[in-house]
Design a binder for these strands. Structure first.
Lengths: 337, 337
DNA sequence: TTGTATGCGTTATCAC
DNA sequence: GTGATAACGCATACAA
């Protein structure tokens, strides 16, 4: 049998409410009695029944996090940043991965909602084009923060990186290296990050007077298989591009592997650049140029925003969209020797 | 205001208990009334208050998972396996990472305990040498399943791979490739997995009549920096090993990078082999030979075991230790041409 | 500063 | 099959 505040109260001949207040450090209780109570609580091995407290207060001190893949360096960095801030502020964090699958994302969101998380931090999956499962939260003013893959249709705090700037810089860099015919393997355009990266690419081309060639742009889900299919398509008619900007590192890798297998040298024959700075991009040969995203900082910021929102229930917050700088990392795969 | 079972009851002029039973598919309720109740529950937008139900039943339908690092391919595979089975069985999964930090692990365990997870699946951190935070669970018969990094001192289901066999096979393989002076960079020996890998290494050496040279064995935390330090130490006195068995892929990688920087060729001059089959091990040059661990299956099995335990409260279960086969993957880094 | 009384929404025990 | 009632452990409005 677990000891309750009533047991402690009985032992000390005081009321349960005093015990409750003392244990919650309510300043209205005198220090003397508070200490007395805490001491006997300790002695009796008291452990608060959080389930009861949560039920009573309708709060869980829990932040839900939905990410597409826990296994991607960028996302796990964000998660670490969130955890860092959350734990310091007395919040637990519960993480689930959608696997870029809409059904799973929907299910997780409903589970989190049913379990009354105090707030939700989310980066949506590639298949996500409807948002009822997220409006569940915003409609009831449950704090909601988006990062990276955000949703325009919902008002909330949003934390993104400068994808447009990243795409622009990367393409500019390829042009500076002498590339004239630059292909782009992009992600699904329902996700704004990929749209922005692509628009940055287009802007850089236009600025340099290079016409945009739609046949050089392929949008897919950026898996390894997708990357291979894309490069096959791009090189089909022997009208080869001289550089490829891939919207993530994984497809950049698969492109490089495919090219190498077919006797084409990177970067000598074709320049390649990725996005996100996955750890492997530094390790492979050639090392892959890419764009660095400040995942850990984004996570910290996301947690700060949501905790503020949870604690300040007074009035609607002014939602802000925070854009973090992205930074190009020039490695071997994009540099003419 | 959320609608409750009482609201539904009032609307239908029946009792709340009937509503409760109907919504929980209690077979004692006639199908007619059940349907009637479910229909109006739908109409009224009823959402069960899980917090109240959890409080009442002392169950949360939640499984806690503690892993050292969410970011390691092996661990995230296990997590995916756990989620797969858990969701299918109506359990939510809440994941936290210890970062191989004891304090954090301790805190997470206490948080999970306080939040009354129905069961805990855990792989302990490198610093973990005391287990009170886990006995919290076993002492109160809260289902507990260890995987990979298990704890001998606590009786529970355990799922491991054949680390001994892996270490043995790997070393054997190096010997077959002609290695005579084989170093070992191992993990902390308080973790049985590393002890077993090391013992497999020793067994293979002995079998081949090679004497064990303590100066060729270095134990550390297997980070990238540790790997570099270890190889520096091993090559200090110009008395070089001709092969190195690293207890994980990351230290194998840092060893290879260090050697390459110093003009020593892998595998021509020194053979290197890792452990765990991290994705990058296939991608780097030379590709790293390693040992494959069936993470996803382990996760599924762990979830199955814990769910069985949660549902069968009758009597103490017979705890089993399941050993999954490990499989050597021969790539370039360990093969004499 | 402390005590009393009440209720959160559900499930479980009993009675009918 | 269904209903009345109590209880889970805590936090809080109100009274003292």
């Amino acid at each position: 049998m677990e000891t309750t505040i009533h047991d402690i109260a009985k032992r000390l001949n005081i009321s349960a409410s005093t015990v409750s207040r003392a244990l919650n450090n309510n300043p209205i209780i005198s220090e003397a009695t508070r200490n007395r109570i805490k001491k006997t609580a300790d002695e009796m091995g008291y452990r608060p029944n959080i389930l009861a407290a949560n039920f009573r207060t309708k709060r869980t001190n829990t932040i839900g996090v939905i990410v597409p893949l826990i296994n991607r360096h960028f996302f796990s960095s964000v998660v670490s940043g969130i955890e860092d801030v959350a734990y310091k502020n007395g919040f637990a964090v519960t993480i689930s991965q959608s696997n870029d699958n809409f059904e799973k994302e929907d299910k997780i969101a409903h589970t989190f909602f049913a379990n009354r998380v105090d707030g939700l931090i989310v980066s949506i999956g590639m298949e996500t084009t409807t948002f009822d499962h997220l409006k569940l939260f915003s409609d009831r003013n449950i704090p909601l923060v988006f990062f990276d893959r955000v949703v325009d249709e919902i008002e909330a705090h949003k934390i993104v990186i400068d994808d447009f700037g990243g795409g622009y810089l990367v393409t500019k860099h390829l042009i500076e290296q002498g590339a004239k015919k630059i292909a782009h393997i992009g992600g699904p355009l329902n996700l704004k990050i990929y749209k922005n990266r692509q628009e940055g690419y287009c802007k850089a081309l236009k600025e340099s007077g290079i016409e945009i060639d739609e046949s050089l742009i392929i949008n897919n889900s950026l898996t390894r298989a997708d990357g291979t299919r894309a490069i096959q398509k791009l090189t089909k008619n022997n009208d080869w591009p001289d550089a490829i900007f891939c919207a993530n590192d994984l497809s950049a890798l698969s492109v490089i592997i495919y090219l190498q297998k077919n006797g084409i040298k990177v970067p000598e024959d074709i320049l390649v650049i990725g996005f996100s700075n996955e750890p492997f991009s530094e390790l492979v040969t050639p090392s892959i140029s890419t764009v660095k995203q400040p995942g850990f900082s984004m996570g910290k910021k996301a947690a700060e925003l949501i905790i503020n929102q949870i604690n300040n229930t007074t009035g609607k917050p002014e939602f802000e969209t925070i854009t973090m700088p992205s930074e190009i990392i020039e490695r071997s795969s994009s540099k003419r020797k």
